[in-house]
Simulated scan of single mutants.
Amino acid sequence: MENKSHALAAGAFVVALLALLTALAMWLTRDTTEQRMFEISSAEGVTGLQPQAAVRYKGVLVGRVTDIALDPLQRGNVLLRIAVNEAAPITRTTYASLGFQGVTGLAFVQLDDKDEGSPALVAEGDAAPRIPMRASMVSRLSEQGGNLLTQLEQASIRMNGLLANDNQKQLMGAISNLSDAAANISALTKRADQVLGADGNPVAMNLPHMVAQADATLKSIQITTERLGASADAVRNSATEFQRTSKRMSDPGGTLDKIGQSTDALATTSRQIQIQLLPRLQRTVEDTGRTARQVGRAVESLNDNPQSVLFGRTTGLPGPGEPGFVAPAPATAP
């Protein structure tokens, strides 16, 4: 009976001690700052965001997410309720976006302001004021990725069309027409020299025949010029389209610029993960392992000697050769 009463007293003491430690921890970690409540309605998904997630204003921790639910006012939206410190400068132009903590996938609410001179955002009536939600960098990158691929595909199609067999044939035809026109002009020049010459050539005296040949030559030159003009227009249109496509790709904000910006953003995110997140994650794992080992040793000690909670750790009886050793009395024969 005495052992059972000691065990019951030890258990009651442990329970009371745990309750006191819990109350002390809650009292030490309580938040005494004044906070304001805001709402955020998001048309995008909030995967990775959990209650009690951090709310940061330009990277500074200013509050926590208190609740995540569906928006009753806007069908299909997600409603976030956040508690923000009174000192945070939340204005009418403040907007929110989702940020992600490295490779863990955990999200937090990032607040920013595009015009710091705007008036403060205050509640109108009983409802909490709402902060508009903008798409995060990851969402914008995923949306623009398809557009970039589409523009690259269109540019390659236009370049292939410019170098198609039909266009090449038209270009070669234009060059051939130029050669024929030069030959006709050369022949006409020779005929004119014969007509106007004074060498007594019989051909020079046949002016009607020469005029007829000149007229035929001029008509041939006119037809050749028309064909050459059509070929030149086709080549000019193809060159203009190719120039427009190249300019659209190389201009600021174009396809190549967007690809470079996306690559820089991914490289920056990767460097931040390697510099900030991985060392913190390693230290957290080491601290967790050390704490688990200490808790295990404490539990083993409590199981081996539960009365040590009330009476403290006791030392064993001195053995032979140690100070205070008393030899047991010899047993007496019956």
Rank of each mutant, 00 (worst) to 15 (best):
residue 181 A to G: 00
residue 126 D to V: 04
residue 46 V to K: 05
residue 42 S to E: 06
residue 1 M to N: 08
residue 312 G to F: 03
residue 216 A to L: 11
residue 295 V to T: 05
residue 322 E to S: 08
residue 211 V to W: 11
residue 251 D to C: 00
residue 32 T to A: 07
residue 267 A to Y: 09
residue 26 M to N: 10
residue 195 V to S: 08
residue 115 D to I: 06
residue 218 L to G: 10
residue 206 N to G: 03
residue 284 T to K: 13
residue 265 A to L: 12
residue 229 G to T: 15
residue 300 E to W: 03
residue 184 N to F: 13
residue 78 V to Y: 02
residue 100 F to H: 11
residue 235 V to A: 12
residue 107 A to T: 09
residue 185 I to L: 15
residue 44 E to I: 00
residue 297 R to C: 01
residue 286 E to N: 13
residue 156 S to T: 11
residue 296 G to E: 11
residue 256 L to R: 14
residue 56 R to I: 00
residue 325 F to Q: 04
residue 60 V to A: 04
residue 265 A to D: 08
residue 253 G to C: 03
residue 161 G to W: 05
residue 78 V to P: 02
residue 271 R to N: 07
residue 237 N to R: 11
residue 122 V to I: 12
residue 71 D to E: 03
residue 112 D to C: 01
residue 17 L to T: 05
residue 224 T to F: 02
residue 198 A to V: 11
residue 189 T to N: 14
residue 52 Q to V: 02
residue 203 V to M: 13
residue 268 T to A: 12
residue 222 Q to A: 15
residue 125 G to H: 08
residue 174 A to C: 05
residue 179 S to M: 06
residue 145 G to Q: 15
residue 118 S to T: 04
residue 60 V to Y: 01
residue 232 A to L: 15
residue 20 L to K: 05
residue 136 S to A: 14
residue 104 T to G: 09
residue 108 F to H: 15
residue 163 L to H: 14
residue 157 I to R: 14
residue 11 G to M: 02
residue 308 S to P: 12
residue 111 L to Q: 04
residue 208 P to E: 14
residue 156 S to W: 06
residue 82 I to D: 01
residue 114 K to L: 13
residue 246 S to K: 10
residue 248 R to S: 13
residue 156 S to Y: 03
residue 115 D to V: 11
residue 83 A to C: 00
residue 47 T to V: 12
residue 169 K to V: 13
residue 126 D to Y: 01
residue 117 G to V: 02
residue 3 N to Y: 07
residue 333 A to D: 07
residue 153 E to F: 12
residue 158 R to L: 15
residue 331 A to S: 10
residue 122 V to G: 04
residue 319 G to D: 05
residue 127 A to G: 06
residue 51 P to L: 02
residue 205 M to H: 02
residue 138 V to H: 09
residue 323 P to A: 15
residue 174 A to N: 08
residue 193 D to I: 14
residue 191 R to G: 06
residue 19 A to N: 03
residue 56 R to C: 02
residue 86 E to Q: 10
residue 254 G to I: 06
residue 63 G to T: 05
residue 173 G to N: 11
residue 61 L to N: 12
residue 168 Q to Y: 04
residue 309 V to A: 04
residue 110 Q to I: 00
